[in-house]
């Protein structure tokens, strides 16, 4: 079991309020991603749940039990750190066994669990090595192994993939998702990368300046962003925003159109512009179009269309997919 509830959690460092007031309900077995720009408080929130920081006010409940004042060692959670935080003086085996040793488990049982974890994570042949002799991906696996052996109520991941190279990151992303399918244990995953958030999460918490902007499933967030911040943060490339008279036509303070929701034409359309940079990815092409009076827009089109610098194009937003926001940025 591992449901996690935050009730009016507040965290301040001296005068600085990092998290003004957050309440969240995370259900047992859910994969929840905290995502947001750097400094939004997502790591602090995770550390509050872990017990590595204490709340200034508010309550944290684990399976309905108040753990606000419990030290991390007593919360039964496991954490995977960005730096992996492996014990450099211990072999891989001892690293994985450490939490079990701390729980005073009999040696035979420890061996069994370590072997099982090592097999699950393909670490069998590295068990007697020191962490420094391992590659980044292998270290990551050891860190995960150390987390799973103790069968925690929930896993906490603090940007675990940010030190890996791009190819490995995609792999590990899949492995962690796979692991979640297998274990069905609650996982909370912190990242600044919205692609990781979208691909891995059951539900995403979008954080900005210590506030929850939206909490929902990835597609919810993509299709029905609660406000301009979420709309801009989720989706890649970013949504294009237009203010002023053009937005007023739609009875909104500002409107947003995703790059993939345009009809592109060389002859006619709603907005006229000239192509600046065309980024050709093969499968897709991203056009950066300087429009007349509406600023720079990013358009996603299929990879077969070729445009070059200076070409004149016409853009027509899909009328069913125009997002409208009021003056405060709230979705209309």
């Amino acid at each position: 079991m591992g449901s996690i509830t935050l009730e009016h959690v507040n965290k301040s460092f001296g005068e600085v309020e990092i998290i003004p007031d957050i309440s969240l309900d995370i259900e047992d077995g859910e994969f929840v991603v905290f995502v947001g720009p750097s400094g939004c408080g997502k790591s602090t929130l995770l550390r509050l749940i872990a017990g590595l920081e204490d709340t200034t006010s508010g309550k944290i409940l684990l399976d309905g039990q108040d753990v606000t004042d419990a030290p991390p060692a007593r919360r039964g959670l496991a954490m995977v750190f960005q730096s992996y935080a492996l014990y450099p003086h211990m072999s891989v085996r001892d690293n994985i066994a450490f939490p079990l040793k701390m729980a005073k488990m009999p040696q035979a049982e420890i061996d069994k669990k370590v072997d099982y974890a090592a097999r699950t994570l393909n670490l069998g042949s590295y068990l007697d090595r020191r962490p420094r002799a391992l590659s980044g991906g292998q270290r990551q696996r050891v860190a995960i192994g150390r987390a799973i052996v103790r069968e925690p109520k929930a896993f906490l991941f603090d940007e675990p993939l940010s030190n890996l190279d791009a190819a490995l990151r995609v792999n590990m992303r899949l492995e962690i998702t796979e692991l979640h399918q297998q274990l069905k244990t609650t996982m909370i995953y912190v990242t600044h990368d919205q692609v990781e958030a979208m691909t891995m999460a059951d539900r995403i918490v979008v954080l900005n300046a210590g506030n929850v902007e939206q909490f929902g499933s990835p597609l919810d967030l993509y299709k029905k962003p609660a406000n301009r911040f979420v709309a801009g943060f989720i989706g890649s490339p970013k949504m294009n925003f237009v203010d002023g008279p053009e937005a007023a036509k739609h009875n909104a303070h500002s409107i947003g159109v995703r790059p993939e929701h345009f009809k592109l034409s060389t002859t006619e359309g709603a907005w006229k512009g000239t192509v600046g940079v065309a980024e050709q990815l093969g499968s897709d092409t991203f056009l950066h179009v300087q429009t007349d009076g509406l600023g720079l827009m990013t358009i996603r089109t299929d990879g077969d269309q070729t445009f070059s610098h200076g070409d004149v194009v016409y853009l027509t937003p899909d009328p069913t997919r125009i997002y409208k926001f009021d003056a405060a940025g709230k979705a209309l």
Binding site: F13, G51, L52, E53, D54, D69, P71
Partner: peptide, 8 residues
């Protein structure tokens, strides 16, 4: 930074 307990 650490918790109140750690600081105590």
């Amino acid at each position: 930074m650490a918790t109140k307990q750690t600081r105590a």
